[in-house]
Amino acid sequence: MDLTASAGTTRLNTKAVAAATVSVLLWASSFVAIRSATEHYGPGSLALGRLAVGSVALLAIWAVRGEGLPPRASWPGIALCGLLWFGLYMLALNWGEQKVDAGTAAMLVNIGPLVIALLGGWLLREGFPRRLMIGMAVSFAGAVVVGLSKSGGSGASYLGVLLCLLAALLYAAGVVAQKPALRHATPLQVTAFSCLIGTVVCLPFGGQLTGQLAHAPAWATLDLVYLGLFPTALAFSTWAYALSRTTAGRMGATTYAVPALVVLMSWAVLGEVPAVLTLLGGCLCLGGVALSRRP
């Protein structure tokens, strides 16, 4: 009996790890695609276009599978996740990536797992262990170093740093809101309707999107469609699947690899490499996160 349970758990863990790996790889690519697309699409129009494409794909799969509407108990979490992570997060990240390179954005956004731990200590009464507070101090120091690395640049760089930090807060809050919803609804239901809510949040940018679609080159529009189908529809679905099988804190830790992948991808595709001081600050940010999550 124990052996059977252990084997079942192992299979579930393997599936969850595989799903999380898909999310990490696709989200890493999204930082590069966003940086590329923002040459021709504004932050709001890019977010709306990405979310609209993702919503159409997700709702089509939802309709084919016939899963029905999410249970009532799941809607508060879905609504918060849709507003914070799908809507406002994407606006903040797109705007931030207009100001800083993709690698810098990824390093700053990925202090999110530390924020998840802080929110867990506050909202879920999990406490604030000493390692968490030390990790927070180290990550804060890293963010300061990244800011200092931009001191020779324009005020836009500082704004970009702040927007990426805001995106990290929104991402963390979205994950914390999503986890309770997954206790009542399926990963597909949570992802599809969160994405739909995010699309509604971004509807004020509809006119801008229409105008920019008419003038943007085909490669920029392909970036937008790619973002909607893969880093949104697919990656958020695999994330929700994995999150439904583990804790928010452990899932947040899986994104540690994203910044390194983004730096490599942005160097290969965009020819962008963060400055040495920026890389040092980013390593401090991620080091603080790793320290805070030590058992």
Rank of each mutant, 00 (worst) to 15 (best):
V22I: 13
L159C: 00
M265P: 03
L124K: 07
S55E: 09
G77P: 06
W267K: 09
S266D: 14
A5S: 12
P231D: 10
L108A: 04
A20R: 03
N13F: 10
D101T: 10
M90P: 01
S266L: 07
G103S: 10
L80H: 02
L291A: 10
A260L: 13
A52V: 06
L291H: 08
L203S: 12
Q208I: 01
W219G: 13
Q208H: 04
G112E: 12
A172P: 02
L209P: 02
T246H: 13
G160V: 00
M265A: 15
A216K: 01
V289G: 08
E39P: 01
G174P: 01
S74W: 07
N13Q: 15
L270N: 10
A79C: 11
I61Q: 12
L80M: 11
A214N: 03
L124E: 15
G198P: 01
S29K: 02
P274V: 10
F236C: 05
F230L: 15
P259H: 05
S154C: 01
A235D: 11
S30N: 06
A141H: 05
I197G: 07
A268R: 03
S157K: 00
W239D: 13
C283V: 14
T199W: 02
F140A: 14
S29A: 15
L209Q: 05
R183Y: 14
W122T: 10
V144E: 03
K179I: 11
Y241F: 15
C195D: 05
K15A: 15
